[in-house]
Simulated assay, not measured.
Amino acid sequence: MNCKNCSNNLRAKQKFCDECGAKIIQNRLKPKVLAQQVNEHYFSIDNKLLLTFLDLFRKPEVVIVGYINGTRKKYIDVLQYFALSLTLTGIQVFLMSTFFKESTDISSQFINGFNDASTTTDNPFKDFDVNALNNYQGLIYILTVPFSAVGSWLAYYIIGERTYNFTEHLVINLYYSAQIIIITALLTILFLVFGLDYLIISSIVYILTFVYLFYILKRIFKTNFWNTLGRFSLVMAIYIGSFLIIGLITMLIVVIIAVALHK
């Protein structure tokens, strides 16, 4: 018998391929077999999902640096973990736009203040719809990861800490972002069930994302509090600056196109 993943020759009753490490599937796919696989990967007490989630809090450097250095079996792959977080975001958005639509109607007090800020027709907040923006959360998360990766990579490159290349910084930020997205989605759903204000939830979670990034950088690069704070500040400055630059370039392109079309 050959391995169905890499075609390596296998011994009788071999459970794992000694070439690619894949599990050898002996039985045909049936509901019972499928249920066992789902339980093994997602619901059992020692599954990879739970272990990855917990260890990204307890010892994130083991998960992230281990993956960078080649440890790929103990924890969920970084891209799979990020994809899972986006799936959870989709569930969150669905619940917010259906069962909790009234609770997340942010066009009340806070947004109305912007909407009424000017009586002129050119008020930029006049037609701003935060609820519609929530529908694009998944896309926003995907687009922000490269910016955060550029921020951390360039910041550490500037100070001479070049242990990890850009792709490895991308892995760091993918794991970080996935963990934040999962926590945000879970807390949002949980708090909305109990009727708490969505703006308050968002503000609290937003602050915690920065605290967690600080924690990640401190554990991975093994620096003290003040050194980490300096590096964290530089990362955030580059991150925000890159967003502003891209935003200005995008606005400039839109203006040029609009002017060209009206000529």
Rank of each mutant, 00 (worst) to 15 (best):
Y67K: 00
I68L: 05
I68N: 00
N69V: 06
G70R: 06
G70N: 05
T71W: 08
T71R: 14
R72V: 07
K74I: 14
Y75T: 06
I76W: 02
I76E: 01
Q80Y: 13
Y81F: 15
A83G: 13
L84P: 01
S85N: 08
S85L: 07
T87V: 13
L88K: 02
L88P: 03
L88T: 08
G90N: 10
I91V: 15
I91E: 09
V93F: 02
F94A: 13
M96G: 02
M96P: 04
M96V: 04
M96N: 07
T98L: 03
T98E: 03
T98P: 01
F99N: 10
F100S: 02
K101I: 15
S103E: 13
S103A: 12
S107E: 13
S108I: 10
Q109M: 11
F110K: 09
G113V: 03
F114H: 03
D116S: 11
D116K: 08
D116A: 14
A117V: 07
A117Y: 12
T119S: 13
T120V: 10
T121I: 14
D122P: 03
K126Q: 11
K126G: 02
D127H: 10
F128S: 05
D129A: 11
D129R: 05
V130D: 07
V130T: 08
V130R: 02
A132Q: 14
N134A: 12
Q137L: 15
Q137E: 14
Q137S: 15
G138E: 03
L139S: 06
L139A: 14
I140Y: 09
Y141D: 11
I142L: 15
T144A: 11
F147A: 08
F147M: 11
V150I: 15
G151N: 05
G151A: 10
Y156W: 06
I159N: 01
G160T: 06
R162T: 14
T163H: 11
Y164I: 03
N165Q: 07
F166D: 08
H169P: 02
V171K: 04
N173T: 05
L174T: 00
Y175I: 05
Y175L: 08
Y176T: 07
Q179L: 13
I183A: 09
I183W: 04
T184S: 12
T184W: 00
A185R: 00
A185S: 15
L186F: 11
L186Y: 05
I189R: 01
L190K: 00
L190E: 05
F191C: 12
F191H: 06
L192S: 04
L192E: 10
F194A: 12
F194Y: 12
F194K: 02
F194G: 08
G195W: 09
L199V: 06
I201W: 01
I201Y: 03
S203H: 06
S203K: 09
V205C: 02
Y206I: 07
Y206H: 11
I207R: 05
I207A: 13
